[in-house]
């Protein structure tokens, strides 16, 4: 009975995710040029008027308790060339337990400087309304550890979290490489201390020059890199004690048809971390989403 409920919920959520991804296939063309990161942000923002629809999954192992599969859908819109807004819907399935919706997040990223510099700062502000069953591991802060995930979904989802998260994103593009550093501060809006975390990443396409013909397997379509992320304690106990950390190679494949596929096996670096996280994602950017909306509302193109 329980398994039936899990599979039904899983099917429903998967159907919604599939519909979300099918829409851009049917509506419009686009070419992507995305970095392969799952956790770290670079200073590259969404082009104004474009909408990127993304689906991501994380499979995580759990030493005490059940393994899980969390997934989220992102809608990333370029409001201005210096402002990107993003909306997330999160859910997860814990094996031998249940499938639950875990909440939503709304984030905004603001480019600070007019021109490109050696290091480019971007400010990030996010509001999260999630429950305690959230297992997306989209960022690691404070004393987040594997032991936090041992509660059943039924128990965990009783906890309601409203949080704000701020990031200072520093990022550089040089000689084909992207280097990104994120400093994270998160605050539960109830009476809990500020928690801190970090994410670092580097990536590079396999070829820097574009090919003179369209091809799926051209080297410039493949981007490889690595991410390192983890918690830095909280306001009362800042540091590495009782924190978890991960190292994750990342790979991205930007297809000429407009799809981007990402894959990242992540490895916990200490006993507080999940031993293994496998992340994968698929995204598609809809160019001129604002123009499509205008046409939907009857404006001339």
């Amino acid at each position: 009975m329980l398994y039936k409920e899990i599979s039904l919920n899983h099917v429903r959520i998967s159907l919604v995710a599939a519909l979300v991804l099918i829409f851009p296939v049917l509506c419009c063309p686009l070419k992507a040029q995305e970095n392969p990161y799952f956790v770290t942000y670079s200073h590259n923002l969404e082009e104004p008027g474009n909408l990127e629809v993304e689906y991501f999954s994380t499979f995580g192992t759990q030493r005490t308790g059940n393994n899980f599969h969390s997934y989220w859908t992102e809608f990333e819109y370029g409001v201005k060339a210096w402002w990107t807004s993003e909306f997330y819907l999160d859910a997860q399935t814990t094996f031998h337990d249940s499938t639950v919706y875990t909440g939503f997040k709304w984030e905004n990223r603001f480019r600070v400087l007019k021109h490109e510099h050696w290091i480019n700062p971007v400010l990030y502000a996010e509001f999260e309304d999630t429950n305690g069953a959230d297992k997306t591991l989209k960022e690691i802060v404070g004393h987040d550890t594997e032991a936090d995930f041992t509660d059943t979904n039924g128990e965990a989802r009783r906890e309601h979290k409203r949080e704000i998260e701020l990031k200072l994103i520093l990022s550089s593009n040089t000689k084909g490489w992207n280097f990104s550093e994120n400093i994270i501060a998160e605050k539960n809006l109830s009476n809990e201390p500020w928690e801190f975390g970090y994410a670092l990443a580097a990536s590079r396409p396999l070829a820097l020059k574009a090919s003179a013909k369209r091809c799926n397997f051209c080297r410039q379509n493949f981007i490889l890199g690595a991410e390192l992320y983890g918690g830095l304690g909280d306001r009362h106990s800042f540091g590495l004690r009782d924190t978890s950390h991960y190292l994750a190679p990342v790979a991205g494949w930007n297809l000429p048809s407009g799809w981007t596929l990402r894959l990242s096996p992540g490895f916990g670096l200490n006993d507080n971390s999940h031993k293994f996280l496998l992340r994968w994602g698929v995204s598609r950017e809809i160019t001129g989403f604002d123009r499509i909306l205008r046409q939907l509302f009857g404006a001339k193109s």
Binding site: L45, A81, H115, E116, G176, N178, K209
Partner: peptide
Amino acid sequence: LTNGVVRKKMPAWSKLPEPQRWQ
């Protein structure tokens, strides 16, 4: 191309590798 005109809707294209911007 590298810097864009971000206050006037033109994004910075530094995410394209330098050789692609020269192309």
